[in-house]
Nucleic acid binder design. Sequence first.
DNA 1: ACCTGAACACCGTTCAAGT
DNA 2: ACCTGAACACCGTTCAAGT
Lengths: 203, 203
Amino acid sequence: MVRPPKAAPRPMRADAQKNYENLLAVARTLVAQQGADASLRDLARKAGVGLGTLYRHFPTREALLETLLRAEWDELGAKARTFETASAPDDALVSWLRELVAGARIYRGVVESMMAALADKKSALHASCAAMRAAGARLLSRAQAEGTARTDIDGTDLFALVGALAWIGDHAALEPRAEHLFDVVVSSLFVRDAERVRRKQPR
Amino acid sequence: MVRPPKAAPRPMRADAQKNYENLLAVARTLVAQQGADASLRDLARKAGVGLGTLYRHFPTREALLETLLRAEWDELGAKARTFETASAPDDALVSWLRELVAGARIYRGVVESMMAALADKKSALHASCAAMRAAGARLLSRAQAEGTARTDIDGTDLFALVGALAWIGDHAALEPRAEHLFDVVVSSLFVRDAERVRRKQPR
DNA sequence: ACCTGAACACCGTTCAAGT
DNA sequence: ACCTGAACACCGTTCAAGT
């Protein structure tokens, strides 16, 4: 059902193709250094390309981010499916959240773009973000069904907490404690042992 | 020990005084609407004042924010002291955190400025932010001494979590769940009942 | 089909010139 | 002592003109 927008992406002219790839390569390092709000003008300059060329290939900043993040997110989607079948529901949820928070941190400020994309259905990032949220919701409800995750949170809450944790990781001063704070926050997603439904396999 | 920078703040010339107050009044509503990164040019324009006048009264954006937030923060400091003497340590911590998160949300994006201020000792906001963090640390260690708060977190962690929760509140899409997520995250600060040190007054 | 760069409307910040 | 606004160096975005 989800399909790349252009069913038959006719090959680009050779010079266009080269510009496109160069732009992406430069963008990858620039966004890694400066964050998701890096100067587009600077990007065009560093890629040795006119401003119009940048806008032709990536009509919005989100289109650019979308391309930068697609590989990352395809991988995260695959991991969600793996965890779903290979791990206990609660472990699967924690492992995937860890990956997602790490993924949201490769580019500083990217969670901000994700939030905006979720609110705007026409955004180039919308579909991928919604898919992420849905994958998280699935892992969550699996853990809830098992009785390990608290039932008063949903997929949106989960996404909010991921954003909050990514916010922490985006700040150099807090980064040393980011992993620990991940554990602290994630621990709150699960019900206390005492209230836990009995399960066949005690861990 | 903490004292306003100018021990004897000589009275301003009448016109300067008027500009200063007008600037503050306009800034209050503008920053409330647009967030902490509102356009300074726009502010000067709306206050009917030259750009240089704005910069004369508030040499940096942080100086402006500092003035806007000082009243708010003086109040929060007082509340910390009240809670400290009037409530059980864990209740005091939770109540104060709730106030702080609410306070950090009056202006969108203000936690970002707080983070920057804590990292930069010369910032106009530094002292007030550090004082906030210290007040939180005090309330935390009180709850830790009592045995209700987990001991593997410190004042910086607390501040990080406040920032994370404020981040959630800054996003309209998440705001409906902000209060609930506050409860979820804050619950993780306390040790599980089973591990809790016995206390004279069971609640 | 694709590229370029000038043009437009915005920023933040500084500072010479005015009163 | 205080104010003003032009000037400078940046943005993002659009679009006429070129190949």
